[in-house]
């Protein structure tokens, strides 16, 4: 019987020996290729929103710390966020060391938060670990809270002289970023 309708006959549609039709294979191949292609297209569309090369190029900052007097703090900018650099007084160091670190919400000693040989130099992000406000206390005359460190005005988190959370909603101590002193100890490189 010649087929003039262009319609597949039951014989043509019957299973092959292994029960898989040619059309099943084509279907799976086409859908898989489309799926892989789709993922390959979605990846750049998502990745384009990540920090661009010019933002990443600014990801490390040098700060000259030589002029900071004991009891004084400066604000620098690291990755578009405030960075607090404070030279602690002997009294502030003693206060920080007098606290039993184990009793704190985020247990850390002052030694763990500073560098060997520069125990009086406290470098932290000026970003409250609660919701990201800038705590007060770095500039002259700002309130420094009950524990003499930093005080976040947004939701009342209080940080001690080692910038550890003591009271209020912040879950962790002010973050100490990765940084290094240059050999003569006058400049730090953050990031």
């Amino acid at each position: 019987m010649t087929d003039t309708t262009g319609t597949a006959t039951p014989e043509m549609l019957a299973d092959g020996e292994d029960g898989v039709r040619r059309r099943d294979f084509l279907n799976i191949a086409a859908v898989s290729a489309t799926g892989i292609g789709g993922v390959a297209v979605v990846y750049p569309l998502i990745s384009q929103m990540a920090p661009s090369a010019d933002v990443l190029a600014e990801s490390s900052t040098e700060v000259d710390v030589s002029a900071i007097q004991p009891g004084q703090a400066i604000k620098a900018i690291f990755r578009k966020q405030p960075l607090f650099v404070r030279r602690l007084t002997q009294r502030e160091i003693d206060e920080a060391n007098a606290v039993d670190a184990g009793s704190l919400r985020d247990p850390q000693t002052l030694a763990e938060r500073t560098k060997e040989g520069h125990r009086d130099m406290l470098v932290t992000m000026g970003v409250c670990t609660h919701l990201g406000c800038v705590p007060l206390g770095a500039a002259e005359g700002e309130p420094r809270g009950e524990f003499g460190g930093y005080f976040c005005p947004c939701h009342g988190s209080q940080f001690d002289t080692a910038a550890r959370i003591r009271k209020g909603p912040a879950p962790t101590n002010l973050e100490v970023p990765e940084y290094e002193f240059n050999p003569d100890g006058t400049v730090i490189t953050v990031g």
């Binding site: 750049p44 569309l45 990745s47 384009q48 929103m49 990540a50 661009s52 090369a53 010019d54 933002v55």
Partner: peptide
């Protein structure tokens, strides 16, 4: 996507397109 990285200010527009080409991830694409 391009509008996320572009600025229509005559002083920076040309540079923004080069920023898209060089800095933005997959911006050239």
């Amino acid at each position: 996507v391009l509008a996320m990285h572009y600025a229509s200010d005559a002083t920076v527009a040309f540079g923004k397109v080069e920023h898209i080409m060089r800095d933005v991830n997959w911006g050239w694409l």
